[in-house]
């Protein structure tokens, strides 16, 4: 279990991380999302005792990382942004070293074999780390974090440098590990986080911009009713006609998908369902409606809106801030 209370880090006048609070229960995966330089890695470095915090507290299984760092660190498996690999060692030699470094008590051979199997590096165990591809290096880094079976896993962009199939496998593994570990997973790739995490914290400019369950985050911002329609017919006239539908807020023609066929993006005011009116208008004018779909706001949109400072403030983010005050 991880408890973070008002964690803050200043470098001189610069606030790298400002007043972040959250908890991660056992068996939960928390996603850390944010653009590069938002403070994700700084936060993780504070949690793992690599750097100190200016103020605030981080408790790992109830142990303060600054008060009893060795005990707290023994609960953590950490994969930093750049995996700490000794390039001149073999994979097996390196993992044996980590085993000794962590003063691991589990049966050595069985445990190492288990970790290598989980991360699928058994077949490269005899190779020098410097000769491995980036994806394999990343997996050795993950294996390193898993040694000693620590209850808390902190993974800073674990899928960097992997191909799509490897990413799937690693995310599956993390999801499996999340059932009996407390996991923090950072990424700037939304789909990864969405597929893996129970809860998400979006960090921007060193502060928590949003903090909610994955589903809620997507739901909260997609209250607007948005539709994408593909209609065959004269573009100008169609736009004009569509703008007359009751309750419509916004309509614009997107790109030409097929010859003479445009895609139109429509947004209705809350409480209005414009799909029937749309169908009628198209029929009256003898145009053809080729497809009609609702444009759910994706997490991608949420993320972009939050980090681009478009001023979307989630209810849950407000309560999170209120809770801290």
């Amino acid at each position: 279990m991880i408890e973070v209370r008002n964690l803050t880090k200043h470098y001189g006048d610069k606030h790298a991380v400002n007043d972040i609070s959250f908890t991660v229960e056992d068996g939960e995966i928390l996603g850390f999302l944010g653009p590069n330089g938002a403070g994700k890695s700084t936060t993780m470095n504070m949690l793992t005792g690599y750097i100190s915090s200016t103020s605030g507290q981080a408790l790992i299984n109830g142990v303060d990382i600054l008060e009893d760092p060795i005990k707290a660190k023994s609960f953590i498996g950490y994969l930093p942004e750049l995996p700490p690999l000794y390039l001149d060692m073999t994979v097996k030699g390196y993992l044996n070293y980590i085993y000794d470094l962590k003063k691991c008590k589990l049966p050595r051979r069985a445990h190492l074999r288990e970790v290598m199997d989980l991360t699928q590096i058994t077949e490269v165990q005899g190779r020098l780390i410097k000769n491995l591809s980036k994806g394999y290096k990343q997996r050795v880094g993950l294996a390193q974090a898993l040694i000693g079976n620590p209850p808390v896993l902190i993974l800073d962009e674990p899928t960097v440098g992997m191909d799509p199939r490897q990413i799937q496998e690693i995310l599956m593994l993390i999801k499996k590990l999340g059932k009996n570990h407390s996991v923090i997973l950072s990424s700037h790739i939304l789909s990864e986080i969405q597929a893996t995490c129970d809860r998400i914290i979006i960090i921007n400019h060193g502060v928590v911009a949003a903090h909610d369950t994955t589903d809620n985050l997507a739901k909260n911002v997609s209250t607007d009713h948005r539709i994408i329609a593909r209609i065959e017919g004269p573009r100008q006239e169609i736009v004009k006609a569509l703008r007359n539908i009751a309750g419509i807020r916004y309509c614009r023609a997107d790109m030409e998908r097929e010859p003479g066929v445009f895609e139109y993006e429509l947004e209705a005011a809350p409480g209005y369902d414009i799909r029937r009116a749309l169908f009628d208008i198209v029929c009256e004018n003898h145009w053809y409606l080729l497809s009609l779909g609702s444009a759910e706001m994706t997490l991608e949109d949420v993320f972009l809106k939050i980090t681009m400072g478009e001023g979307i403030v989630l209810d849950s983010a407000q309560t999170a801030k209120g809770g801290k005050a």
Partner: peptide, 14 residues
């Protein structure tokens, strides 16, 4: 230089 320092300093050793 190799950024392995981070692994060392976050390991449970003094």
């Amino acid at each position: 230089k190799q950024k392995t320092e981070q692994g060392l300093l976050t390991a449970p050793v003094s």
